[in-house]
Design a protein around this nucleic acid. Sequence first.
DNA 1: TTCGTTTATCGTAATATTGCAATAACACAA
DNA 2: TTGTGTTATTGCAATATTACGATAAACGAA
Lengths: 107, 107
Amino acid sequence: MGLTKSFHFDEEQNQLASFAKAFAHPARIAILQQIIKNKTCIVGNLTDILPLSQSTISQHLKELKNIGIIKGEIEGPSICYCIHQQNWHRAKKMLTKLFSEIDRNCC
Amino acid sequence: MGLTKSFHFDEEQNQLASFAKAFAHPARIAILQQIIKNKTCIVGNLTDILPLSQSTISQHLKELKNIGIIKGEIEGPSICYCIHQQNWHRAKKMLTKLFSEIDRNCC
DNA sequence: TTCGTTTATCGTAATATTGCAATAACACAA
DNA sequence: TTGTGTTATTGCAATATTACGATAAACGAA
């Protein structure tokens, strides 16, 4: 059926899965790394750097924005995309929590 | 075309995306949480806990195993699934690195 | 060997994701 | 207003993911 049964899971599990989806594609990793690195954060150069078409990149940006991990503001003729600090921190916190829940396993 | 152009991205970006995929579904989050929590780690009870069929759960386990975030060993009539400590740590390290690469953003 | 329990795989169906070309929309400058 | 440079959206096609029922496979016990 292809439809994730998200309503069966709790808020935290769904939120964490959503955040993880932001990182679940190499192009989005590359985009995020670039946004972080590029302090000027004009996104036009992404089309020069990434091996993807402008429309595909735009789509990934849209997804990252929907997830809430980045935000965009109009800046002259282009758009300034940057990390959504609050949600970035939230994602970090939630993932760190999951990672540290383990102490020792049975095997 | 639906085919991720992974060959265009570097090893680290692909590996990170792959690890993130493990966490990109609430059911897999739930499974991982359960495995961590259940020190006995017999997986049979997952069908009682999760609102998914046995075959679907098995598929998610297979995916987690393929990604390398868990590993399974035969234990009597059932299977003992546990966190793959080394890769778990690797994923943690890689994600932590990405998260801490940010200091201040332009907006 | 046969039965019961447990996990894996197969077949199928529906939705989601990825990607690109073409086009639209927007902002600024002339 | 008209062009120019930029990002967004649309339309399409192909692959991936999610899910389940049915069935197979594996194991221990009887």
